[in-house]
């Protein structure tokens, strides 16, 4: 372990990982059911739903891991997550007609208490905070 870099899994990081883990589970399970049962109704939406599940899984792995690539994986996943929730959120607000409102990122995550909108911001803050040269 490096002296100046704090593990992303330390202290409150465990809370963040727990939240990401729960979103990984719920988004993935939900997408799996949607794709298995009603994929033809909205293929793009349900593929995006599956993508969100994958992104949450990768973010969880990145934040919990201690390998050299873990931090980069977490950064990448959280940035994609932020772009995803903003893009899907904006699209669903502007044009709710085509897009079912039951994916994680629909209307900026309204169905999930807007946690999907806040979570990537906290994730980015935590990654930055633990990056280097942070004195306790």
């Amino acid at each position: 372990m490096s002296d100046s870099v704090r593990a992303t899994s330390s202290g409150p990081g465990r809370v963040l990982i727990a939240v990401y883990g729960i979103f990984a589970l719920s988004a993935t399970a939900r997408a799996a059911v949607q794709i298995a049962s009603k994929f033809h109704e909205a293929p793009v939406a349900y593929l995006l739903s599956a993508l969100s599940g994958v992104v949450y899984i990768l973010a969880t792995i990145g934040l919990a891991g201690h390998r050299p690539w873990s931090r980069r994986l977490a950064w990448t996943a959280v940035v994609i997550e932020l772009v995803g929730v903003l893009a899907v959120g904006t699209f669903t607000v502007l044009d709710s007609g085509d897009f079912p409102d039951d994916t994680v990122w629909s209307v900026y995550g309204r169905g999930y208490g807007f946690i999907p909108l806040v979570l990537p911001l906290i994730g980015l803050w935590w990654l930055r905070r633990t990056r280097a040269n942070v004195r306790p």
Partner: peptide, 9 residues
């Protein structure tokens, strides 16, 4: 997860 010892750190 809440009570585990982090095996890496």
């Amino acid at each position: 997860f809440a009570t585990a010892t982090d095996e890496n750190t």
